[in-house]
Design a protein around this nucleic acid. Structure first.
Length: 256
DNA sequence: TGTGAGCGT
C-alpha cells in the first residue's frame, strides 16, 4: 500500500531522534516539499506592525524561507496575522517556544504551526449566545468538543464588572463541517441544567465590517437613537447624512 | 450584534 509513506512521515514528526536536522527544506518521500514542520501562522499581531518588522522579528530566530504579513486586498491594512516558513524545522519549533505569548503593545501574539491551507478549514468560526452565565470556557469547550477539534474558544466578559460572563462567546473548529454539525446539534438546545436554549451560528467575517455593512450599522444606530414622536421624522433623516461626513472611517474604526 | 481580523497573490 502506498499509504505507508505518509505513516513514516508521521513517525518522523514525533521528534528528532538525537541526530541534528539537515539544513534545508524537508523533502518528503513522494518528492513534494512538506511545510508542516516549518510553516507557522502568527496571530494577534499589532495593527501597525509592518512586513519588515514582522520579518526581522521572526528572522532573529533563524533563516526564513518565506514570510508574509496578510493584508486587506483593497485597503492594504494589516489583517493582524501572518505566515513564516523557516528553512529548518528546529527554528520553527524554537520560534513557537520563544515568541508565542510575546507581548507587543496591547497584543499578545500567538505562534503556532500552520495547517495546510484548504477550503475545508475556512469559515469554521461560530458565535454562541444565550449561554448560562455560570458556564466557563472549559464547560463550553466540553459541550462543543463532541463535534470536532476546537482551535480557539472565548467567552466574552463584562468590561465593568470584569470577569462576569456576558453569556456569549466564540468557538473556532478545525473544519467547517465540524462547525456545521455543532450548529445542527446545539442551536436551540438547552445545555444540561440550563434554563434557556442557546443560539449557535456562524460568526460574522470581520472583513465584511467595511463598506455596506458599516453603512447599515450606521443607519441602524441612528434609527435607534431617534425613537421620538412621528412628526419629528423629517428632522431625523436630515441628521443621518451628516453622520457620514465624520472623521475618516479608516482611522476611527479601531475599538482600542 | 459580536472576539485579540485564525490559513495567504
Amino acid at each position: 500500500m502506498v499509504t505507508i509513506i505518509s505513516t513514516m512521515e508521521t513517525q518522523v514528526s514525533n521528534g528528532p531522534s538525537g541526530t541534528s536536522m539537515p539544513n534545508g527544506p524537508v523533502i518528503s518521500t513522494n518528492g513534494s516539499t512538506d511545510d508542516s514542520k516549518t510553516n507557522l501562522i502568527v496571530n494577534y499581531l499589532p495593527q501597525n506592525m509592518t512586513q519588515e518588522e514582522f520579518k526581522s522579528l521572526f528572522g532573529s530566530i533563524g533563516e526564513i524561507e518565506s514570510c508574509k504579513l496578510v493584508r486587506d486586498k483593497i485597503t492594504g491594512q494589516s489583517l493582524g496575522y501572518g505566515f513564516v516558513n523557516y528553512v529548518d524545522p528546529n527554528d520553527a519549533d524554537k520560534a513557537i517556544n520563544t515568541l508565542n505569548g510575546l507581548k507587543l503593545q496591547t497584543k499578545t501574539i500567538k505562534v503556532s504551526y500552520a495547517r495546510p491551507s484548504s477550503a475545508s478549514i475556512r469559515d469554521a468560526n461560530l458565535y454562541v449566545s444565550g449561554l448560562p452565565k455560570t458556564m466557563s470556557q472549559k464547560d463550553m469547550e466540553q459541550l462543543f468538543s463532541q463535534y470536532g477539534r476546537i482551535i480557539t474558544s472565548r467567552i466574552l466578559v463584562d468590561q465593568v464588572t470584569a470577569g462576569i460572563s456576558r453569556g456569549v462567546g466564540f468557538i473556532r473548529f478545525d473544519k467547517r463541517n465540524e462547525a456545521e454539525e455543532a450548529i445542527k446539534g446545539l442551536n436551540g438546545q438547552k445545555p444540561l441544567g440550563a434554563a434557556e436554549p442557546i443560539t449557535v451560528k456562524f460568526a460574522n467575517n470581520p472583513s465584511q465590517k467595511t463598506g455596506q455593512a458599516l453603512l447599515t450599522q450606521l443607519y441602524q444606530t441612528a434609527a435607534r437613537r431617534y425613537t421620538g414622536p412621528l412628526h419629528h421624522q423629517t428632522q431625523r433623516f436630515s441628521v443621518i447624512p451628516s453622520l457620514g461626513k465624520g472623521p475618516d472611517p479608516n482611522n476611527s474604526s479601531k475599538p482600542m
